[in-house]
């Protein structure tokens, strides 16, 4: 004779077995929860419900939630970096270069948007879901479109590899938070703010891990090269940054160790056999940016 708890488990097991082939996991979880409840085992129903929360928290963040997180981080980037620079023609040009590169990147199915930050420092940031920023100071340092394409390619690489989402996922796990994204944001906005503030601190103040930066350097040069830009332009650009002095060196805080970065770019060009096409489009860049910076 089965006791009540065992009977409940048996019913739940049968429901799981019978629905597994035809429905999604959320439906299975719901069905199992309902079965446990109707068999009079409220405690088991609650456990299944909680299990769903826990598993949901440990699973990767979906695109809809990524958009929410990306937008919230974008708000902080804009606020901390002097707002968006109001130059519609130059913004459209940066978007055309960036979207041209994104068209054949490794995550081409999402929208990428680019904005210029009204800030003299030399920097660029990528928030989840394709919110990408370059500072006015960075654009002043760039000499041609091929350099811009590789810089934007680097930022696109952070999005394709979900680098910030990885940071959020880890911090969430360390803090024992089982949810994030929409459910989390709506039910517990203060906790959502803590998650976003933590990610912003990492992005703007501490900088991402060196491994993530090198991975994005590699992808940046590959993505720009796929469109036909000369990959050696990125090498020239990084070399120019290395010689910067004074306040401009603030960039080094979030993008460290240039010798490592340069050697990564050089080895990517040779290993991937990226063609030196000679396409730099310096004239188009200077026409588009002249008088606007």
């Amino acid at each position: 004779m089965l006791n009540r708890s065992s009977r409940g488990l048996l019913v739940v097991g049968l429901v799981l077995f019978s629905t597994a082939g035809v429905t999604g996991c959320a439906e299975i979880q719901k069905a199992a929860e309902g079965a446990a409840r109707s068999s009079g085992n409220e405690r088991l129903a609650k456990t299944i419900h909680g299990g769903g929360t826990l598993i949901g928290g440990l699973l990767p963040i979906g695109y809809e939630e990524e958009q929410t997180i990306g937008q919230a981080i974008a708000l902080q980037v804009v606020a901390r970096y002097g707002g968006v620079y109001d130059q519609p023609d130059l913004t459209r040009y940066v978007n055309l270069v960036g979207r041209g590169v994104a068209l054949t990147c490794d995550r081409a199915d999402i929208d990428y948007r680019f904005a210029i930050l009204n800030h003299d420092s030399i920097n660029a940031f990528a928030a989840p879901a394709g919110y990408i920023f370059v500072t006015r100071g960075l654009l002043k340092t760039i000499k041609n479109e091929a350099e811009l394409a590789a810089v934007l390619g680097h930022e696109i690489g952070h999005v394709t590899q979900k680098h910030i989402l990885d940071v959020i996922q880890r911090s969430k796990q360390i803090a024992g938070v089982a949810e994030t994204g929409l459910a989390y944001a709506n039910k517990n906005p203060d906790a959502f703010k803590n998650v976003i503030d933590g990610a912003v601190k990492k992005l703007l103040d501490e900088g991402l891990d060196q491994g993530k930066e090198l991975e994005s350097d590699r992808l940046g040069v590959i993505f720009a090269s796929r469109v036909g830009y000369d990959p050696t332009a990125y090498e020239t650009f990084l070399d120019r940054l290395r010689t910067l002095k004074g306040d401009d060196r603030a960039f080094f805080k979030t993008h460290p160790d240039f010798s490592n970065r340069l050697s990564t770019v050089r080895s990517t060009i040779s290993e991937q056999k990226l063609k030196a096409t000679g396409i730099l489009l310096a004239d188009r860049f200077s026409r588009s940016s002249s008088g606007a910076l």
């Binding site: 996991c25 979906g62 709506n186």
Partner: peptide, 23 residues
């Protein structure tokens, strides 16, 4: 979404009574 992310979304939606507007 990859399969795991879609699965996570499914689980989380059972928790989310109010879904926000699309970004």
């Amino acid at each position: 979404d990859n399969e795991l992310a879609a699965l996570g979304k499914g689980f989380r939606q059972t928790e989310a009574s109010s879904v926000t507007a699309s970004a």
